[in-house]
Simulated assay, not measured.
Amino acid sequence: MNLKKQLTKAFVLSWLSLLGFGVMALLVERNQIIHFDSRIISYIQGFEEPFLTTIMKSLSYIGGTIPVIVLSLLTIIFLYTVLKHRSELILFIAVIIGSNLLFVSLKLLFHRARPDLHRLAEATNYSFPSGHATMAFALYSSLTFLFWRHIAKRTGRVMLIIFAAFMILAIGISRIYLGVHYPSDIIAGYFISCFWLTLSIWIFQRYQERKNK
């Protein structure tokens, strides 16, 4: 696949993701997704048992602020000192900081209260969109994008995708299981993060193309 096709796909995916977020936001604003949210929460929390709760709390912690900051700093150090990727370093920082600013701003805009059906953990601030889901998608998807070309074997690349997908989905599900987010919060977090990630990659790739010319 040539660069032009990659840029086109990134651009289209970016705006489709923004459209997806817009649809979710509209449904939430009109209270037209409560039945969907309630059914999914009831289904996921139907698996509740002590050992699984411990696992879900661990996954939720991994998706929290401190672990995300630590992993981001380690990635920055690795990109700068080992791979010597200065431009990729800027891309990664832009994705992480931009995603964080987006979900914080949107929470303040929508003011959605957290679910109160069955809480297994405590959480502060507003619910929509999920910060854990937004940052998990931004972090693990950007790591996949940055490290993909450094893995020679197909098996390694497949494992990288599986790991990233597992972490993104598991962290999102953990927040639903613990009763601190609606499923629509998680989906919206994925959408807005995908929008920012793909838009950032599109800008980055266009910059690289012009630089190489």
Rank of each mutant, 00 (worst) to 15 (best):
S72P: 08
L79P: 07
T81V: 14
R86P: 00
L27C: 11
M135V: 04
L71T: 11
S58M: 12
I44Y: 01
I90D: 00
V23D: 00
F78H: 05
I76G: 05
F36I: 13
I69V: 14
A94D: 07
T54D: 08
I69Y: 10
G22S: 01
A133M: 03
G98Y: 01
T81H: 10
R112Q: 07
S72F: 10
V12E: 03
F92L: 03
Y61S: 11
P67E: 07
F92C: 02
S60A: 15
L18K: 05
L71K: 01
V68W: 00
F51G: 11
G131W: 03
S14T: 02
T53D: 04
H132E: 04
P129G: 01
S130K: 08
L139N: 01
G63I: 04
V104W: 09
F110Q: 04
Q32T: 06
K107E: 01
S105C: 11
F47H: 07
F110V: 05
L108M: 09
K9F: 13
S14P: 04
E122I: 15
G131E: 04
G46I: 11
T81I: 14
S72M: 08
V82M: 09
E122Y: 15
L52C: 07
E49C: 10
F51C: 05
L101I: 13
I96K: 05
L120N: 02
H111V: 09
T65S: 09
M24I: 12
H118E: 09
T54Q: 12
D37H: 07
L102C: 04
S60I: 10
I77E: 05
E88A: 11
F78K: 00
E88I: 00
V68T: 15
I90K: 10
V70A: 11
I69M: 09
F51E: 10
R39K: 13
R30W: 03
E29W: 09
L108G: 14
P129D: 02
G64A: 13
A133G: 04
G63F: 02
S99V: 08
Y126H: 12
I62H: 04
G131A: 11
I33P: 10
Y61L: 13
F21V: 03
F103M: 03
S58G: 12
L101C: 13
H132F: 03
R39A: 09
F11A: 14
L52I: 14
G46S: 09
K107C: 03
L109E: 01
I76H: 04
T65C: 00
R86L: 06
P67T: 06
W15F: 15
V12A: 05
L91N: 08
L73P: 00
F47K: 06
L79H: 11
A136V: 08
L109I: 13
S42L: 13
R114E: 02
D37V: 09
Q45P: 08
